[in-house]
Simulated scan of single mutants.
Amino acid sequence: MKHLIPLFVIAAFPAAASEDIADQYPGSILYAKPVEFIPGVFSATGATAPPTYENAGHNNNLSFIVTDEGVAVINGGASYELAAALHSEIKAVTAQPVVLVINENGQGHAMLGNSYWAEQNVEIVAHVEASAEFEEYGAQSLRSAQNTVKERAEKTTVVLPTKTFEDSYTITLGGIDIEARYLGPAHSPGDIVVWLPQKSLVISGDLAFHERMLPVFPHTMTAEWIETWDNAFEALGATYVIPGHGHPTNMDQVRRYTRDYLVYLRDKIGAHLEDGGDLAEAYYVDQSPYAHLDTFEELATKNAGRVYEQMEFE
């Protein structure tokens, strides 16, 4: 267990963020090589930056759980080739076959790689809302990926999950309980977490961010996200967290950069509204405590505007 301490400590600091590094693993299409965070649980940390040709669209975390009865993969990946590259890394670690893929939500970087896993005859599981989201917008996600990563998306097609659930999906592999849970509204439709109770580890998907600023989408209801966090996510009592974006870490860090950021921004926008401020001014409310996060320049003003539009009618 001694090797866990450096990884755990290093992962907790924003200095580990990598927005300015185009590719950390030149030998693979993956942005970074998978690392064993705790025994049996690996994660290939994506770039804390928007998808680019250089990072091959790998800007979220692709994780896998190795057991004596097979491997469970968390996230299909942003393309056929990314999924294939992750599979190659898995084969280098274990002879156990991949028996399950869980999509953390309906975004392209979680589901476009399903096209590879379907060829391997692997069960692909997602929340019913995430599946519906990808069914509606998957073609759009694919076009966006093709425009960004070009030939690296050539084999990628839109493939829906083979199994969906509403509240939870649980499987036990090699004595390890793997629980996919829908905790409530969060970042995007059908966001789920994967909870490993025996390991006190949660793979949070986009319910939690680390090292980069989270984006508030037009459909992201920030008040409900905070409520889901406070009422359900904290209740897990996780010791270890693999977030949707950023290096594996702990609850204190993801709380700081997700829940606390949402509360902070809503407080700033709320005060702005009370003072009679308009939308044009709302874009520039003070977010300086979070200016060190990757993607701050791309997202801070957009987030403020969208939270203003939400809170104006709350």
Rank of each mutant, 00 (worst) to 15 (best):
281 E>R: 12
169 Y>F: 04
242 I>E: 11
118 A>V: 04
62 L>I: 09
197 P>Y: 11
175 G>Q: 03
129 E>D: 07
77 G>P: 00
197 P>G: 14
40 G>H: 14
282 A>G: 09
11 A>D: 12
157 T>V: 03
234 E>Q: 11
117 W>G: 05
151 E>C: 11
149 V>F: 12
6 P>S: 07
261 Y>D: 11
309 E>G: 14
26 P>T: 10
305 G>C: 02
240 Y>A: 05
196 L>A: 04
172 T>W: 06
248 P>S: 14
5 I>V: 13
90 I>K: 03
50 P>N: 15
80 Y>E: 01
143 R>D: 15
193 V>P: 11
228 T>D: 01
311 M>G: 02
284 Y>E: 14
258 T>Y: 00
282 A>S: 13
295 T>M: 07
274 E>I: 02
191 D>S: 00
145 A>Q: 06
96 Q>T: 03
252 D>W: 01
304 A>F: 07
298 E>G: 02
271 A>M: 08
260 D>P: 13
66 V>D: 09
88 S>K: 13
192 I>Q: 14
98 V>Y: 15
296 F>D: 14
166 E>Y: 05
199 K>L: 14
268 K>H: 06
37 F>E: 15
19 E>S: 11
312 E>Q: 12
231 N>E: 13
27 G>R: 15
100 L>P: 08
96 Q>A: 14
89 E>Y: 06
60 N>D: 15
197 P>N: 15
212 R>W: 13
70 G>S: 07
235 A>C: 07
161 P>C: 07
222 T>K: 01
312 E>N: 12
49 A>G: 04
15 A>M: 15
141 S>E: 10
17 A>Y: 11
123 E>M: 03
179 E>Y: 12
193 V>G: 14
173 L>H: 09
232 A>C: 04
36 E>K: 08
257 Y>V: 11
45 T>K: 10
310 Q>P: 00
133 E>R: 02
216 V>N: 00
275 D>T: 15
65 I>S: 04
191 D>Q: 00
79 S>D: 06
22 A>T: 11
173 L>A: 08
257 Y>A: 11
279 L>M: 10
29 I>S: 07
195 W>G: 00
163 K>E: 13
175 G>Y: 03
31 Y>V: 10
28 S>G: 14
112 L>E: 02
29 I>A: 15
121 N>W: 14
43 S>E: 12
215 P>R: 12
201 L>M: 10
70 G>Y: 01
258 T>H: 00
50 P>F: 10
151 E>K: 11
33 K>S: 14
24 Q>H: 12
236 L>Q: 03
42 F>S: 09
172 T>E: 13
157 T>C: 08
108 G>F: 01
28 S>R: 04
279 L>A: 12
27 G>D: 12
288 S>I: 08
162 T>S: 05
50 P>C: 09
143 R>P: 11
311 M>K: 00
33 K>N: 10
299 L>R: 01
154 E>R: 10
286 D>S: 06
44 A>M: 05
178 I>E: 10
36 E>A: 13
240 Y>E: 08
162 T>C: 03
281 E>A: 11
